[in-house]
């Protein structure tokens, strides 16, 4: 897998095709919207979707933890699909998560889905701020956030192709969601566009690498 470097506030960040950001100088892995136990949340409402989403998400996380060996992992909120999600974890998954936490320092930021679980609302490190949902910024700040599950649609010779993506400009990095069962919001939707008034870039995820396009190039969604 090839991660793509971007430079913000004098630092280099790697955009990984798995949908996470690695910050080499701090040995920090940043990821957003794990939505663990989303399937059991649906099941409680009557849709018995397969109960393997947490396992699948933790599998992918384990690979990244092994590959990057980060000291710190920042989860940008909505780590659980709802406030009771943690209680519904299968014993095996809970034990696995505990092993991850013992080996790396996890910073759980609170999101709108898992507010009641008591995570921090934001984290600051020099010019970098980490929070669940993007907000107005002070001059010189660079913000990492999740929440929107951005995806972009790119016109190609054989029709449009939609993929989850990063969205960035000089001040913000919007991360795609990392959860196994999470859908997406088109980057052309008003809430995302409002965050990037002067345009930006999207980086579409794929197995081996990310694909870069100007934000304005993403096709108008239906």
């Amino acid at each position: 897998m090839n991660a793509a470097p971007i430079h913000r506030a004098g630092h280099r960040f790697m955009l990984d095709p798995a949908g996470v950001v690695f910050w080499p100088v701090r040995r920090t892995l940043i990821l957003a919207d794990l939505h663990l136990e989303k399937a059991s949340s649906s099941a409680a409402r009557g849709a018995l979707v397969p109960p393997y989403d947490t396992r699948a998400t933790l599998d992918r996380l384990a690979l990244l933890l092994r590959g990057y060996a980060p000291e710190v992992v920042i989860a940008l909120g909505d780590s659980f699909h709802d406030d009771q999600g943690h209680a519904r974890l299968a014993a095996e998954d809970a034990a696995r998560l505990a092993r991850f936490e013992a080996a790396h320092r996890f910073v759980w930021i609170a999101g709108n889905h898992d507010q009641a679980m008591g995570g921090a609302t934001m984290l600051r490190d020099e010019a970098c701020v980490f929070r669940h949902q993007a907000e107005a910024l002070e001059a010189g700040q660079v913000e990492f956030s999740g929440h929107f599950h951005p995806k972009a649609r790119i016109a190609t010779r054989a029709g449009a192709i939609a993929r989850p993506c990063f969205v960035t400009d000089q001040h913000r990095v919007l991360l795609p969601s990392f959860g196994a069962f999470t859908g997406g919001l088109e980057v052309t939707a008003a809430p995302i566009r409002a965050l990037f008034p002067r345009g930006g870039q999207v980086f579409l995820l794929s197995r081996e690498r990310v694909f870069a396009f100007p934000l304005a190039h993403a096709a108008k969604a239906a």
Binding site: A4, P5, T156, I161, Q201, L204, F211, A212, P214
Partner: peptide
Amino acid sequence: LLAEAEALLAEAGIEDDVASSVHLA
């Protein structure tokens, strides 16, 4: 197809800083 679309834009000189940084990665 995505790689082709990306390369087309790079050839046309659109957002070349972004595109080239990806190729170097």
